[in-house]
Amino acid sequence: MSLSIETLPPVRGTLTPNRPMDTLSWLRVGGPAEMLFQPADLQDLQDFLTALDPAVPVFPIGVCSNLIIRDGGLDGVVVRFGRGFNGIEVLDNSRIRAGVGALDAHVARKAAQAGIDLAFLRTIPGAIGGAAKMNAGCYGTYMADVFIEAEAITRSGQRITLKPADMGFAYRSTALPDGMILTSVTLQGNAGEAEAIEQKMTEALAKREATQPTKERSCGSTFRNPAGYSSTGQADDTHELKAWKVIDDAGMRGASIGGAQMSEMHSNFLINKGGASAADLENLGELVRKRVSENSGITLVWEIMRVGKPAAQ
């Protein structure tokens, strides 16, 4: 089915056919979205989904900070969340509600100003919707630890509320069904002094600068740490077996294909050094998985999502 603005439900937001995704992607790669929809607000999104042909695939994105969009692009409608979905509201002295388009760092800062400790979010790239969907975390705290509920819209346009049990939180993942679109997330953090929380975030940023290639184009950790974890990942920073270590042991630190490279600074960071295609990035990742498997018998699991179609041959 070929999509056009004329064949889709009317919207108050913006519909853009064949929109290249590389300029919207954190890694600056990706072919075109068949149709990019930027809804004006929640009602616009709900009306659109309610009227949309159920056969048309729908894929929501934020800032694509954990996503490789393949060079052939994405079929169907890609929903991108902008100003109508980036509000942040302090509910009380421990809870905050954020639209899915709100950046993790902005939520952490707004929470800190209100004396709510969500400091772990400060160093996580991307937006709250993706963080909730992927159960993002660092330094021993995960979204599952602070999640209260989320508002969502089903593929058919029904608004629902999701509780922790509905999310199916696991290590670096959830069990949300395809087509389910989060629209806002409510989080609860420990109460604290604003200055102390700010200092905690400053220290975390300094640690990240010292150990990760923050100036490069990357999606953070490329592969999950090996072995099992609890749903909240409390062992994340104490477990002996790290993805970077098995990558190093396989001799893949600094390895490259085209413009893609495993960072010299942190070998579990896949970076676009400039001019990489999505295929370069994905092929390098697969080569790392192959070499690690050959060297240690460990099968690394992608943490970065890969979506869309390869480029036509």
Rank of each mutant, 00 (worst) to 15 (best):
L27N: 09
K309N: 14
P125T: 10
L3E: 06
P32V: 12
R291M: 09
T214Y: 13
D280H: 13
Q38T: 07
S267A: 15
S173Y: 02
A227D: 13
E209P: 01
H106F: 10
L24Q: 07
N93I: 04
T299I: 05
D280M: 10
Y139R: 15
D178T: 10
L118C: 13
L182N: 12
P226L: 04
G179W: 02
V11P: 02
Y142A: 15
M252T: 08
A119I: 12
A243N: 04
S184T: 08
E89W: 01
F48V: 06
R19P: 00
V246D: 06
L91E: 15
I88Q: 07
G220E: 07
L3A: 07
M167V: 13
T154E: 00
A206M: 13
T186N: 02
E294N: 03
L36D: 03
A102H: 06
R95H: 12
A105N: 14
E203G: 13
S94T: 15
I197R: 08
D41Y: 06
E282Y: 13
L270P: 05
A243P: 05
N190L: 15
I153M: 09
V58P: 01
C64P: 03
Q234Y: 02
M265K: 15
A144M: 12
A311L: 09
A114P: 06
R217M: 12
D248P: 00
E264A: 11
A255Q: 13
F59I: 03
I197V: 14
S230H: 01
K207T: 15
D249F: 03
L49Y: 02
N135Q: 11
A311G: 12
L27T: 08
Y139I: 09
M262R: 10
L241A: 04
L36I: 03
T186E: 07
M201Y: 13
A227Q: 11
S184H: 06
I197P: 12
D92F: 13
S296W: 01
M134T: 14
A152K: 00
G73N: 12
Q188L: 08
E203C: 14
A108T: 14
L24R: 08
I61E: 05
T7H: 13
A227K: 08
L15E: 02
V56A: 01
